[in-house]
């Protein structure tokens, strides 16, 4: 069973956070060779990992990190406005109801079949987070291969500018609109896979009773 943590630096236990930072180091630094800071030789942590960041972390029963992502408020400095303002030709969406999706990370230890399942669960968690918290827009930066996958999830996703070459890869800024029927669109594309976290189940049960 997969567990979803929707948390911040303050709320989360060190164990889950450290596993996530280590997984991020393994994916973004060791595998993808991103030029981002590494702390203590094994944790990828940058200036946006602060109290304003929100994390969605998928953990296995035994506490292993499966996948994670970081959501940044767009009303404060974030990746698109700080590092890649040149990727946006349209005005950058920026509001309390707009979050930037960053560090979408699938653990390298996952087998192919689990990988896709976990990816779908994380995408679903991102949409559920928006629905629960009144978020209407997500923004982000994606490498083109990943952009093609993001398009195929079935939601309303569009570029904020034309793709631009950056350190040998092609990057594109994007905007995803979250609407009432977004879950249905994801379901039609075969992506929708809610994680039955204990918290959610309780909330649903409470709702059912009252």
């Amino acid at each position: 069973m997969v567990q979803l943590l929707d948390t911040t630096l303050k709320e989360a236990g060190d164990a889950a956070l450290n596993l996530m930072f280590a997984a991020r180091k393994s994916v973004f630094v060791d595998l993808l060779r991103w030029n981002v800071p590494v702390r203590d030789g094994c944790h990828e942590i940058d200036q946006f990992d602060d109290d304003h960041a929100r994390y969605l972390i998928l953990l296995a029963d035994d506490g292993r990190h499966l996948a994670s992502t970081r959501l940044l408020p767009t009303t404060r400095p974030h990746i698109l406005d700080t590092l890649f303002p040149n990727l946006c030709e349209h005005p950058l969406p920026r509001s309390p109801r707009t979050l930037e999706i960053t560090r979408f990370c699938l653990d390298r230890s996952l087998r192919a079949v689990d990988r896709r399942q976990v990816r779908d669960q994380l995408v679903t968690a991102i949409v559920e987070h928006a629905v629960e918290h009144g978020i209407t827009t997500y923004t982000g930066v994606a490498e083109m291969g990943w952009f093609q996958q993001i398009l195929s999830f079935g939601w309303d996703c569009r570029p904020l500018g034309l793709p631009t070459e950056h350190e040998g890869s092609m990057l594109c800024a994007l905007r995803i609109a979250i609407e009432a029927d977004t879950p249905r669109c994801l379901a039609r594309a075969g992506i929708w896979s809610p994680t039955a976290t204990p918290g959610l189940r309780e909330r649903r049960a409470t709702g059912a009773r009252g």
Partner: peptide, 17 residues
């Protein structure tokens, strides 16, 4: 090149759908 990149990606996804 860059606009072709976007058009190609979007067109392919529309065709898939």
């Amino acid at each position: 090149h860059s606009v072709a990149q976007i058009l190609g990606g979007i067109a392919f996804d529309a065709a898939r759908r």
